[in-house]
Design a protein around this nucleic acid. Structure first.
Length: 196
DNA sequence: TAGGCCATCTGGTCCT
DNA sequence: AGGACCAGATGGCCTA
């Protein structure tokens, strides 16, 4: 079934077969040959005898393995960093009681919609501040239809929070944002029944 | 047990 | 050449 792994398992780049993994991060893996050539067309046998590398096959294998291990390590760290950032994002999102940890995709979508709701709240607050007492303007027309749910890309002028020009880092009155956040949360929850 | 979520490994590609 | 990024594959864990 798995074409890839049947390939990989059967040749080169063996995962763990080698026992010793000392000197793990030592070798800067110098010249050598191509890295773990997946399907090197070795079929085409050269006419002349190709001069054999100075390194023994075992050495080449060790180099490949070390390089792979280093790459795996970097990849692991990269994903850990990504997860840390995701956790930070979860930390600034409103948490609801009795909720389990948001999954990755939920976190991203929730954040997207939450930002959208915050932006809407700010925009409407600005509108109301502009024309004082000119009708309540209660987050109605801009609301995405419940059916369209939280892909949010949907309706009207505010498909994305791009209109939120001012950076969140420099609000004119930061202390006011608590209630805005409340409003946004309320708006978000009412707009997006699918998720919270 | 099936399905969802996740971590990890891996090879390829792009960038510096 | 080496690192970063990406997507596919795989296996483990958990829950309905």
């Amino acid at each position: 079934m798995d074409p890839v792994y049947s390939d990989i398992d059967s040749n080169s780049c063996d995962f763990f077969p080698h026992t010793d993994d000392e000197e793990s991060r030592g070798g800067s893996a110098s010249p050598g040959s191509s890295v773990c050539a997946p399907r090197s067309p070795q079929a085409e046998q050269p006419q002349k005898k190709r001069r054999r590398s100075r390194r023994s096959d075992a050495t080449v294998q060790v180099l490949k393995k070390n390089r792979r291990m280093k790459a795996n390590d970097r990849e692991r760290n990269r994903m850990h960093n990504l997860n840390d950032a995701l956790d930070e994002l979860r930390g600034v999102l409103p948490a609801f009681p009795d909720e389990t940890k948001l999954t990755k995709i939920e976190t991203l979508r929730f954040a997207h919609n939450y930002i959208w709701a915050l932006s809407e709240t700010i925009r409407i607050a600005d509108l109301q501040a502009g024309k004082t007492g000119d009708g309540p303007l209660l987050l109605r027309s801009e609301a995405p239809s419940p059916g369209s749910s939280w892909s949010s890309s949907g309706s009207s002028s505010s498909s994305s929070p791009s209109y939120c020009a001012s950076s969140p880092g420099s609000p004119s009155a930061p202390e006011d944002y608590s209630y805005l956040q409340q409003d946004a949360l309320f708006a978000f929850r009412s707009f997006v029944p699918g998720i919270y």
